Simulated scan of single mutants.
Amino acid sequence: MIIVSNTSPITNLAAIGRLNLLQDLYDTILIPEAVNLELTSGGDEIPGSTEVKTLSWIQIQSVSNPNLALSLRQELDAGESEAIALAVELQADLLLLHKPLGYQVASRFGLKIKGVLWVLIFMVKYRGLIPSVKPLLDELIGTADFWITPGLYHRILQLAGE
């Protein structure tokens, strides 16, 4: 499987010490250069920056069509633009994103898109690799400043069977 990630799924999971969930699901996560730069340009203070530099299962791959990424910059930031462009180029099986606008733009290319909340639900409901979503969801909100509406919060717990 080819999995491409934007910055936020990595930073959010790293902030709560659960970046390993991505490795548990997928052998390799590809990130474009712009995502790598977003993660590492601020030093080790950004959650996931150390992991991106040291974990072999997170691999950096350059976008071979910079024109597509550049055109996406009219709507998105550099990381999202390159993540979408890389996913299109590689015909990725999955693109990990967080922001709704990124979802909208990526869906125009027919990409399969999921976010951190889906990863948590999948790990509980379908894989049984974590016992509960609620503690991790609460930690995302409290530690990673992850924003979620109360309605979606309750829907996620419902989907996870909690």
Results as ranks from 00 to 15, higher is better:
Gly42Val: 10
Arg18Thr: 02
Ser56Lys: 14
Trp57Gln: 15
Trp57Leu: 15
Ala85Ile: 00
Gln59Ala: 11
Ser41Glu: 14
Ile58Thr: 09
Glu82Phe: 00
Asn20Gly: 13
Ser64Gly: 02
Leu21Tyr: 12
Ser56Pro: 10
Asp44Val: 10
Leu37Tyr: 11
Ala15Glu: 09
Ile29Phe: 04
Gln74Ser: 08
Leu13Cys: 09
Leu13Tyr: 11
Thr28Lys: 12
Pro66Val: 03
Asp44His: 04
Ser64Phe: 03
Val63Leu: 02
Val63Asn: 02
Ile58Lys: 07
Ile60Leu: 15
Leu37His: 10
Thr54Asn: 14
Pro9Cys: 09
Glu75Leu: 07
Ser62His: 09
Ser41Cys: 15
Ala34Phe: 02
Ser56Asn: 14
Glu80Asn: 04
Ala87Arg: 08
Thr11Pro: 04
Glu75Ile: 01
Asn36Met: 12
Ala83Glu: 03
Ala78Tyr: 02
Lys53Cys: 01
Arg18Met: 04
Glu80Tyr: 05
Gly42Glu: 15
Ala34Tyr: 02
Gln74His: 05
Ala83Thr: 01
Ala15Tyr: 08
Asn67Met: 04
Thr28Cys: 06
Asp44Met: 08
Ile31Glu: 14
Gly48Thr: 08
Glu38His: 00
Arg73Tyr: 09
Asp77Gln: 03
Gly42Arg: 13
Ser71Ala: 10
Glu82Ala: 00
Leu30Phe: 15
Leu25Gly: 03
Gln59Met: 13
Thr11Lys: 11
Glu80Gln: 05
Asp24Ala: 14
Ser41His: 14
Asp24Ser: 11
Leu21Thr: 15
Gly17Thr: 10
Val52Gln: 05
Ile29Asp: 08
Leu39Val: 04
Leu55Ala: 07
Ala34Lys: 07
Arg73Asn: 12
Pro9Gln: 11
Asn67Glu: 09
Gly48Tyr: 04
Ala14Met: 13
Glu51His: 06
Thr54Met: 08
Val35Pro: 05
Pro9Trp: 08
Ala85Arg: 01
Gln61Asn: 02
Val88Asn: 02
Glu38Ala: 01
Leu76Ser: 11
Gly42Ala: 14
Thr54Glu: 15
Asp77Val: 04
Leu25Phe: 06
Tyr26Glu: 12
Leu13Trp: 08
Asp27Ile: 09
Ser81Ile: 04
Ala83Gln: 02
Gly42Gln: 13
Val35Gln: 06
Asp24Val: 11
Pro66Met: 02
Ala83Met: 01
Ala15Trp: 08
Asn20His: 11
Asn12Tyr: 15
Leu19Ala: 14
Arg73Thr: 13
Leu72Val: 06
Leu70Ala: 15
Ser64Ala: 06
Lys53Pro: 00
Asp24Asn: 11
Thr11Trp: 07
Ile58Ser: 08
Glu82Ile: 00
Pro32Ser: 07
Val88Ile: 01
Val88Leu: 01
Glu38Lys: 01
